[in-house]
Amino acid sequence: MIEFKNVVKQYPNGTIGLNNINLTIGEGEFVVIVGLSGAGKSTLLRSVNRLHDISSGEIVVDGKSITKASGKQLRRIRRDIGMIFQSFNLVKRATVLRNVLSGRVGYHSTFSTMFGYFPKEDHDIALDALSRVNIREKAYSRADQLSGGQQQRVSIARALAQKPKVILADEPVASLDPLTTRQVMDDLQRINRELKITTIVNLHFIDLAREYATRIIGLRAGEVVFDGPVSEATDAKFAEIYGRPINEDELLAAEAAKGGVTV
């Protein structure tokens, strides 16, 4: 469970990233956050694992306040939160397996990880994570030899290797083509359902949000302007979130049609 209590984030230059956010996200939910560029989606997601510090308020993850945590405590909470990035953030010259194993470091002492050693169980966990995203056969390839979609699945496997309770994904499909987009979203959905991992995804495709989410949260200028199930997220509601009618390029189907792909 993730709780936002009166969360405010002001950047050093004065920009308000988040303005008094109050949210409770329950276990196993698949939440999609939508909003215009600059609405504060990334800021919200990065506050959860404290890649960004918030200015006031509190964020509680699984009963523990990440806002008040520090040092080892903070790293323990982060270990339970997997994160997936738009640009994959893999070490490109390292092997796929090495990248996935790096998700395990939170479970080991500094000394034992210093020499890059991982016990056999970790190798099993890593290979199992790769199987879940259907790229186990790539375990010994260098990460930069994989396609974008495959790299994103490696980064999902790395997050899974953490054995997380929560997965955060910031625009995970923004640099992928429509077909790969579906595969990656399917992976995230399957993991959410099978492992009951609470999942929060930032997306800018409206149809994709409706298709995969169990709950949609709309942000505008750092405030929550919509929060409800998919059935309530009508075109009119989206127009409200965006402050204007929906554009063609906010639909994956339209993008796909442009590229000549049917999905």
């Binding site: 890649l51 790293r75 323990r76 982060r78 994160m83 893999l90 470091v105």
Partner: peptide, 16 residues
């Protein structure tokens, strides 16, 4: 900087 961010997010300490 991407991999550094990913390592921080996964709960790694400075040496890791």
């Amino acid at each position: 900087p991407g991999p550094l961010e990913a390592m921080t997010a996964s709960g790694a300490n400075k040496i890791q």
